[in-house]
Amino acid sequence: MTTVLYKAADRGTGDYGWLKPNYYFSFGQYHNPKNLHFGVLRVLNDDYIAGGGAFPTHPHDNMEIVTIPFTGALKHKDSTGGAGIIKAGDVQIMSAGTGVQHSEANASATDPVTLFQVWVFPKVNDIQPRYDQRTFDLNERINKWQYIVSADEKDSALWINQDARFALTSIKAGSTLTYSNKFSGNGVFLVNISGTVTVGETTLGRRDALGIDGTESFSVTANEDAELLAIEIPMN
């Protein structure tokens, strides 16, 4: 097993007034030629959107875009006819495919929104654009992996155009949880959303991440109550 540690303090940052992002990989005004992606995982932005903040309508193509909110409510509208409001417990995916226009806005004029937005290169280019969202039961991720995005319909998750799987867990202090790859040869980008955990000899604090490759499974032990996101993706 090989690992790469991504410390929260080393992420790229921005401050646009209404938007305060933290970038795990090069994005926008943050460019680090040594940190462009992890396998087909191209973008992971940890965003704070102030009340009334909004991304105006803009285009995307040939990208799988997953949004996971933690607090507040985010309003989405796109040219496929997809529209909705997502909040904690919800997950949204958009396959940009041949091209799509969309906008995102804080649904509140006063309360902030915090979220992860994740971009993954697609398996097949130029598919028909599509949009989907789903509400997941937070109790179903306590001390176990809850699959929220997957190419395998058996995972009962939102479908993604890639041999990939996203999973969330809320792991209690002292518990150990093993993650096993759905797709052989994939890597996993493990993000510690909150709390403190240990993977092998590495301790992850809040918002630290670990790129894991060269293994089909690994175990995580919670030093205190923690929340984790595992993004399993092809490395080529």
Rank of each mutant, 00 (worst) to 15 (best):
N192P: 11
Q101H: 15
D46T: 05
A209D: 02
F136A: 00
R11A: 03
V66Q: 09
G97F: 04
G187M: 04
I171Q: 12
K77R: 14
L158K: 10
D163M: 07
A73G: 12
I65Q: 01
T169W: 10
N22H: 14
A164Y: 02
I127G: 02
A209H: 00
D213S: 12
K144R: 13
G174E: 05
D208W: 05
K77Q: 11
T176F: 12
N45S: 12
G39Y: 01
D213Y: 10
P69N: 12
Q101T: 09
Q162N: 00
E224Q: 15
S103E: 11
L168W: 01
A9Q: 14
V66K: 07
N186Q: 09
N35C: 05
T80L: 02
A167S: 13
A209L: 02
Y16Q: 13
D47Q: 13
N186Y: 04
Q128V: 15
S103D: 03
S26Q: 11
H58A: 06
A230F: 06
D15S: 12
N22S: 15
E104A: 00
D90E: 02
F25C: 03
P112K: 08
M63L: 13
N236T: 08
G39K: 08
W119I: 06
A173Q: 11
P122A: 02
G84M: 05
K75V: 09
N32L: 03
G17M: 02
V66N: 02
L228W: 04
W119N: 07
M1V: 15
E153L: 01
T196A: 13
V100M: 05
S175Y: 09
A157P: 00
G89C: 01
L190P: 09
S219E: 10
F121L: 14
N45I: 05
N32D: 15
N139T: 13
Y48P: 06
F121W: 10
I148Q: 05
G99I: 01
V4E: 10
T202P: 08
K20S: 12
D111F: 11
G97T: 05
F218H: 13
Y6T: 07
N161G: 06
T13A: 08
V113F: 07
D137H: 06
N139P: 00
L74V: 00
T202W: 09
L44S: 08
A9I: 14
Y179I: 13
G97D: 07
G82P: 13
F25A: 05
G39A: 04
T221M: 10
K172Y: 06
Q29C: 00
S219I: 01
W18E: 13
G72R: 09
A96S: 08
P21F: 03
N45C: 08
K87G: 14
T203C: 03
N139W: 00
N143T: 04
R165Y: 06
L228H: 06
M94T: 04
I68A: 09
T215H: 11
D46A: 01
V91N: 07
A151Q: 13
S79I: 02
V66I: 13
Q117G: 10
V191E: 07
L74H: 04
